[in-house]
């Protein structure tokens, strides 16, 4: 039986950013899904839960922190999906807000290929 690919949901309103992450992650054999904001991400999670989330902070309609807070209040297993927040916001208060909202880790944009693949592997439980 073929092994299931690990799935990552990218939640970011910038199409170029989603495209950039997709290119990196697909090259490492991850399956990638995209959502443009927190609301769309919540809808996608209802259909098919990914193995990991990559979440931006500033997005229209529902920002990343509100999305994570909503997600963490849901039932298992959705509420336990690991989430990596990647944002341009580099202030200590932004990182603290993301952590309080339910982020497992926080990285500041821009990100190189190696850093993203390293964190994706770690969050999905793959060997480094």
């Amino acid at each position: 039986m073929a092994e299931r690919k690990l799935r990552i949901l990218i939640v970011d309103d910038a199409s170029l950013v989603r495209h950039y992450y997709r290119q990196i992650l697909e090259a490492k054999c991850f399956e990638v899904e995209e959502a443009m904001n927190g609301l769309e991400a919540l809808e996608k999670l209802l259909v098919n839960a990914p193995d990991m989330l990559i979440v931006d902070v500033n997005m229209p309609q529902m920002d990343g922190i509100t999305f994570l807070r909503t997600l963490r209040r849901q039932a298992l297993p959705q509420s336990s999906i690991p989430a990596l927040v990647i944002s341009t916001e580099a202030g200590a208060q932004d990182i603290a807000a993301a952590r309080a909202g339910g982020a497992n880790f926080y990285l500041v944009k821009p990100l190189g290929w190696d850093v993203l693949t390293q964190y994706a592997a770690m969050f999905c439980g793959l060997p480094a």
Binding site: V57, N58, M59, P60, Q61, D63, G64, G91, Q93, A97
Partner: peptide, 15 residues
């Protein structure tokens, strides 16, 4: 604003 929710509200309004 330090609050992402407020930034989002402002950005949506300005858009």
């Amino acid at each position: 604003s330090d609050d992402a929710n407020i930034r989002t509200g402002a950005l949506d309004a300005l858009r």
